[in-house]
């Protein structure tokens, strides 16, 4: 079985977002970049399947050179090789096109992604790739088992979950509790240095969307504190001042 895991390199979840250049660029100063938390779930499940079934695991990122540390970390966690498509990943369609092009060359049985990236949060790339490959896409996947040619999947839906079955190949967007996040060990870090990381130039369409500028949310006004022994007052305020109940 051949598995492709698509990963993003994104600001750590504790990052305070700020912009520079007249609000047209993320201020990367002091920002730690990590593997997208959902992508980490996808990778962890892929590595488990590798250990169980001897599958091969390729990780792929559409991004610039500064995302290579994330790919190296994925190799240290257990991926066999890595591909970086050398382009700024600002449009979901464009990113999907790059991933689909690699997938067409290599015919993966499973393409695992995160349910969504935590930068642009579209939750869209897996579906677009699925469409481009004429392959079913399912997200968010909470459980995944492979039984021969069939995947058994539990997917979250509004207010509950759903059990599904589908034949491979599939494109899946993953979330917890599909697997436990993995941390690289010393041996993994050593072997990762010699695993292949291939850089490929992008192909395909121009971007269908661009970001003209960014903005930070307006700060919330000062908090109004209500003494605990007058808690009932809160309900009055929500009713007559905030008018939300």
């Amino acid at each position: 079985m051949k598995i492709l895991v698509c990963v993003t390199s994104v600001p750590d979840t504790t990052t305070k977002i700020a912009f520079t250049d007249n609000n047209t660029k993320l201020n990367k100063a002091g920002v730690t970049f990590i593997t997208g938390p959902y992508d980490d779930y996808a990778l962890a499940r892929a590595v488990e399947l590798k250990e169980k079934t001897g599958a091969s695991v390729t990780v792929l990122n559409v991004g610039e050179a500064d995302s290579e540390p994330v790919l190296r970390k994925c190799l240290a966690i257990g991926a066999d090789d890595a591909i970086r498509i050398n382009a700024e990943p600002t449009d979901a369609y464009f990113v999907a096109e790059q991933i689909a092009a690699i997938a067409k060359q290599n015919q993966y049985d499973l393409i695992l992604m995160g349910r969504e990236s935590i930068d642009f949060n579209g939750g869209q790339v897996h579906g677009i790739v699925g469409e481009m490959l004429n392959t079913p896409s399912i997200s968010p996947v909470m459980l995944l088992d492979i039984d021969g040619e069939t995947a058994k999947i539990t997917r979250e839906i509004e207010g509950g979950k759903e059990s599904l079955e589908a034949k491979l190949p599939l494109v899946l967007g993953c979330q917890e509790p599909i697997a436990e996040w993995k941390i690289p060990n010393m041996r993994g870090i050593m072997t990762a240095r010699t695993k292949p990381l291939n850089v490929v130039e992008p192909s395909g369409t121009d971007k269908l969307t661009t970001v003209a500028s960014y903005e930070l949310p307006a700060p919330r006004g000062a908090v109004k504190m209500i003494p605990a022994d007058e808690a009932e007052k809160l309900i009055q305020l929500l009713h007559s001042e905030a008018k939300v109940i």
Partner: peptide
């Protein structure tokens, strides 16, 4: 945006080669 809407949006964007804004 919804669980079903999310599943459709991306497939639609692929079919229509559309410029997509989520959220």
């Amino acid at each position: 945006k919804s669980s079903l809407g999310d599943a459709m949006t991306a497939r639609l964007a692929g079919k229509l080669k559309a410029g997509l804004a989520a959220n």
